[in-house]
Amino acid sequence: MINYLLNRFERNYKGTREGLRTGLGILAGKIGLLSNLVLFLIKLMIGLLSGSVSIMADAINNLSDTISSILTLIGFYISGKPADAEHPYGHERFEYISGMLVSVLITFVGFQFLITSVKRIMNPQSVKVTGLVLVILIFSIGIKTWQSFFYQKTAKKIDSNTLVASAKDSINDVFTTLTVLLSAIVEGITGLRIDGYVGLLIAIYIIYSGFKMILEFIDALMGTRPPQAEIDAMKEHLSLVKDIVGYHDLLIHNYGPNKVFASVHIEIDDTWDLRKAHDTIDLIEREFKHGLGVDLVCHMDPVSLHDQEQNRIYLLLKEIIHSLDNNLKMHDLQIEQKDGETSTIYFDIAIPKDFNLTDNELEERIQYAVEQKIGEFQVEITFDHIYLLI
């Protein structure tokens, strides 16, 4: 059923790849809106008839899911808008904002459940358990399970964090409804009024889920390390370019699932003419765009491959650095030699995440070792603390 819906939508869609993503997101939002609204109305009715606070809490949870679906729809509509003068990188990050609003709403509803459940614990009331109540709760579990699988498949197809959150929320609802069902059965068999306690457990679980999703969307808005698979794919593309000497300082900027920009420093032979260097860089950027969907900007770093003195200093300097820590990586070596003045060695060092020396301490040790093994040179070091290629 799920694959049929998604495949039929794709077959009938005539727009762009980005438009297809937006369309599938809107489809998921509409299906979620309809199913959550139906569940809310049904549970509200049986909650009022049975007097169960846990069923009422579950009904209000479905109401929050209905509002979440509306926010999801709004999020996909806005994130699908093309770039404009005020938003040159597009609007896809709004999807993270809509997901954040959904998470805040879930957390707020959880606190409301908490208050209601505490009141019910203090003043317990009997729950009227009927066959209709049991049937409706089982029906709800089935709908929410299907909804979760639908969100998961759609989220995987279009790479949507918002739908991943919606899928988690749906499966949470399955567990909470199972708990409500259990409390109704326990009271029907034993007469124990555990309705308020079950509502309290549901409330705590909803609050926890809400806070967890809020933190995830905060991370997405602030910018987190890209998935390792994404980094490895870029490294593989760069490693296949035979003419370049090397690469470093890869930076990746995410402006939404389909808006990825990156920059990298490409080391080239300093004897190349400008046309050859440009053609090589242009080829790399085109391959990133067509193969990975990434807008790449390359910075050229000329490397002297034919200067024997510079190669000698490079090998000695590399030996010095690796003697301090084998995980340290050096690049961008430049040597400035002046008659009658102390010569200067310029280079960058990529610092591993858990390196135990400060930048000043490391520079002092390298300076001392250079004077001992290479000669009277002043070192000027740029320290890189970005870990994508380390």
Results as ranks from 00 to 15, higher is better:
294 V>K: 06
250 L>W: 12
277 A>L: 07
262 A>F: 07
304 S>W: 09
263 S>N: 05
263 S>R: 04
303 V>H: 08
272 W>S: 02
285 E>R: 13
301 D>P: 14
279 D>F: 08
264 V>T: 10
252 I>P: 01
270 D>I: 00
249 D>Y: 11
292 L>G: 02
294 V>E: 00
297 V>W: 00
300 M>W: 00
269 D>M: 09
274 L>A: 15
268 I>H: 06
290 H>V: 12
258 N>G: 15
265 H>F: 12
295 D>Y: 10
266 I>H: 12
285 E>W: 05
308 Q>T: 11
248 H>L: 06
288 F>G: 01
280 T>S: 08
247 Y>F: 15
254 N>T: 15
294 V>N: 02
278 H>W: 06
284 I>P: 04
262 A>Y: 05
283 L>I: 04
265 H>Y: 10
290 H>Q: 08
305 L>M: 15
284 I>S: 01
247 Y>A: 05
294 V>A: 03
263 S>G: 09
254 N>S: 10
300 M>F: 00
265 H>E: 05
255 Y>L: 01
294 V>L: 03
256 G>I: 13
304 S>F: 10
280 T>V: 15
260 V>W: 04
256 G>T: 14
296 L>S: 03
297 V>R: 04
298 C>N: 05
261 F>R: 05
297 V>C: 02
272 W>F: 14
250 L>C: 11
290 H>M: 04
293 G>K: 12
274 L>V: 15
264 V>M: 06
250 L>K: 14
301 D>G: 14
267 E>Q: 15
256 G>D: 03
297 V>I: 14
270 D>Y: 08
249 D>N: 13
269 D>A: 07
293 G>Q: 06
251 L>M: 12
281 I>F: 04
266 I>P: 11
296 L>Q: 02
280 T>P: 03
248 H>P: 10
299 H>W: 08
273 D>N: 15
267 E>V: 13
255 Y>I: 07
293 G>L: 07
294 V>I: 15
306 H>W: 02
301 D>L: 10
286 R>S: 08
261 F>P: 01
308 Q>R: 09
303 V>P: 07
275 R>C: 06
267 E>T: 14
255 Y>T: 09
276 K>F: 13
303 V>Q: 08
302 P>R: 11
263 S>E: 00
272 W>R: 11
304 S>M: 13
271 T>W: 06
286 R>C: 03
300 M>G: 07
259 K>H: 12
278 H>C: 05
254 N>R: 15
303 V>D: 00
255 Y>S: 02
259 K>R: 14
254 N>C: 08
305 L>G: 06
262 A>D: 00
265 H>W: 07
301 D>T: 14
293 G>Y: 09
269 D>F: 12
290 H>N: 09
276 K>V: 13
248 H>C: 04
284 I>R: 10
258 N>M: 12
295 D>E: 04
